[in-house]
């Protein structure tokens, strides 16, 4: 892994473009009907090719969503291609298939021979396999997706180390198991801190400052009150979780720290959730593109990038990266990474 550090000479913004550091918002101009056009062709080709078109479908989808998202009137670009993702897709299939094959074989011999230790082993291999594959998927998909994302020619990047993430994930999962899930809030916070903390947008670094204890309180309160109120509290819970994530994420450019803010109200979360639910459930999934557009509009409308990000002086720093295994692996395990 070689990072790209050639462009680190300090750039002095004293020429014909003054700094531009006011608070700003992303804008999203995508339309449900256009996304539906892409979707329907994707589905058609995916079915015709027995699923092998999937990587190209995904690339077309992402390309559209990126190109309709803009900052300061310039659009984002997704550079990933179906061809790159196809390699990752095949690798991901082989990895998951291989894991199931091994587990299947062990449990086959376990029933055949009646050795209890073998069935225990097959369970451990399955657990171990997922404990290995999930951080692999997170790492790989962050690495690939971000390196294939750019704005004004400046690429995003992910500098996390796979072994460290695996270690964090492994320890966290064991603790979560031992505490019957109570540790989950700390596990997720730790993962956010690690993953977000290693995102770069050129020379802009991201960080996450959320505390596990705060997240635990939010989750505990959220779950208990949601049960008591028969789910009505869910929208307050959604708001608190989103705020925990967004308000604790910071950007650092040169010596300036930039805050992020989300100011959606409970009613807005309610409208987003209920609207999307009806759009998807009552159309047998055909309304999904409109739900995606609504979600994108929601986040771009309510999230503000605070004072301090100078969009005229972000410098290119990240290396090129083309391995898409994690991208498809995370899809297969349905990890729902943004």
């Amino acid at each position: 892994m070689s990072e790209f550090y050639t462009y680190t000479t300090t750039y002095t913004p004293e020429g014909n473009n003054p700094p531009n550091t006011q608070p700003k918002k992303l804008s999203f101009t995508g339309e449900g009907s256009k996304l539906f056009g892409i979707y329907i062709v994707n589905m058609l080709l995916t079915v015709v090719t027995l699923g092998f078109y999937y990587p190209w479908a995904k690339a077309a989808n992402l390309r559209y969503l990126y190109q309709e998202t803009a900052l300061d009137n310039d659009h984002f670009t997704f550079h990933g291609t179906g061809k790159e993702m196809f390699r990752g897709f095949i690798k991901a299939i082989l990895l998951i298939f291989g894991l199931y094959l091994v587990v299947g074989l062990i449990s086959y011999f376990a029933t055949k021979t009646g050795i209890v230790l073998l069935s225990l082993l097959s369970f451990l291999v399955l657990m171990g396999g997922f404990m290995y594959l999930i951080p692999l998927a997170i790492h790989g998909s962050m690495k690939y997706r971000l390196s294939r994302s750019s704005w004004r020619g400046i690429h995003f990047g992910y500098r996390g180390d796979r072994a460290t993430l695996m270690k964090e994930f492994f320890i966290g999962t064991i603790l979560a198991m031992l505490t019957l899930g109570l540790y989950n809030s700390w596990l997720i916070t730790t993962l956010y801190r690690y993953v977000i903390g290693h995102i770069r947008f050129g020379n802009v670094a991201f960080s996450f400052e959320g505390k596990g204890a705060d997240f635990f309180v939010i989750n505990l309160k959220g779950v208990i009150l949601s049960i008591i109120t028969l789910g009505i509290y869910m929208f307050w819970y959604m708001k608190e979780r989103a705020e925990f994530l967004v308000h604790n994420t910071k950007m650092q450019q040169d010596d300036r720290t930039i805050d992020l803010h989300i100011d959606a109200q409970v009613a807005d979360y309610f409208a987003l959730f209920i609207g999307n639910f009806f759009l998807v459930a009552f159309t047998l999934g055909l309304g999904t593109p409109w739900a995606i557009v609504r979600t994108m509009e929601f986040y771009t409308r309510y999230i503000t990038i605070g004072e301090g990000l100078d969009t005229n002086s972000i410098r290119q720093t990240e290396a090129d990266y083309r391995d898409a295994t994690g991208e498809d692996l995370s899809d297969m395990m349905d990890l729902g990474i943004v």
């Binding site: 462009y7 704005w151 004004r152 972000i314």
Partner: peptide, 10 residues
């Protein structure tokens, strides 16, 4: 024009 080194449009 973007030179690929800095996020500034010329």
């Amino acid at each position: 024009y973007f030179n690929g080194q800095v996020s500034k449009g010329f």
